[in-house]
């Protein structure tokens, strides 16, 4: 994996205080969010569709700014003004990578090579270094054969691989993923979880927004639940949170008739011993 050095972790990666975000006056998509995400943590933000988890992810990536409250990353305030500073923008973008839910949106270049090279080039890296990073990531993700293909000739799973590769070439410390398992075939899902396991081993931070609770069990060590009125209603280990059946029912993450945690479906095709997996059977 193209990972950075182990991190110093002096400050939490993200600190949100009293964050509110309105998409229209009087219509919040997030409300009263107080949340700190530590360095090296693996957090799943769970919530029903429309609960604001994608919005939260976009705020962590400095794409949206709070209507009220503050958000800080690596000890610095994230504001629109801060991003006007090219130095800050470059530093922040190189440390935080965002994998969008819709790979079609994320892949905007003319072929996969350009996709992987886009980030490093925007960071102003020399061409040699860009090529080296593209080659490394392509090899690690096993997508070398896709490099000269335009995005519209790729399958869904291949697109997801390329869009993750496009973020990893920036060698970020934080990876933000929006509904990463949506629309992935089983083999690609296994592949994704392997990539995330590897990521975890290197001490980097991961924040995943999803309504797929099996992802939380597989890779998270912390789970934050957003309610349908856009507030944090639970925050704990996956084991603790998944045990709160009533709460999960209330926020529309599970359904009476779905016995998710009676018979957990495992997507991994390989052994996880040593990764500290916990399976919760409610």
């Amino acid at each position: 994996m193209t990972a950075a050095e182990p991190n110093a972790c002096r400050t939490p990666d993200f600190v949100l205080a009293g964050v509110r975000q309105e998409y229209r006056r009087g219509f919040p998509s997030l409300d009263g969010i107080d949340l700190a995400i530590g360095c090296g943590e693996h957090v799943v933000i769970a919530g029903a569709n429309g609960s604001g988890k994608s919005t939260l992810l976009k705020m962590l990536d400095g794409l949206l700014f709070p209507s009220a409250g503050t958000i800080a990353a690596f000890g610095a305030d994230l504001t629109e003004d801060a991003f006007e500073d090219p130095g800050f923008r470059r530093e922040f973008r190189s440390r935080v990578g965002f994998v969008f839910q819709d790979a079609d949106v994320q892949l905007f270049c003319s072929d996969a090579f350009e996709e992987l090279a886009f980030g490093p080039l925007q960071l102003g890296l020399p061409e040699e270094e860009v090529r080296r990073r593209v080659d490394d990531v392509a090899r690690n993700l096993r997508i070398e054969h896709l490099l000269d293909r335009p995005p519209y000739t790729l399958s869904g799973g291949e697109k997801k691989r390329v869009s993750i590769g496009a973020v990893l070439t920036m060698q970020p410390h934080v990876l933000l993923l929006d509904e990463p398992t949506n629309a992935l075939d089983p083999r690609s899902q296994v592949w994704l979880l392997e990539v995330l396991d590897e990521w975890k081993r290197l001490g980097n931070t991961v924040v995943i927004a999803t309504h797929d609770l099996s992802v939380a069990e597989e890779i998270a060590d912390r789970m934050v639940v957003l309610s349908e009125d856009h507030r944090v209603v639970a925050d704990g280990t996956p084991a603790e949170v998944l045990a709160m059946r009533d709460l999960l029912l209330r926020v529309n993450l599970i359904h009476e008739h779905a016995h998710r945690h009676g018979g957990v479906t495992h997507m991994h095709g390989h052994d996880h011993s040593g990764h500290g997996h916990e399976h919760v059977h409610g």
């Binding site: 794409l63 965002f98 969008f100 905007f108």
Partner: peptide
């Protein structure tokens, strides 16, 4: 959405 995706990858 594409604009956000570009910004996220350091588009300047």
């Amino acid at each position: 959405d594409v604009y956000d995706a570009m910004l996220a990858r350091g588009f300047s």
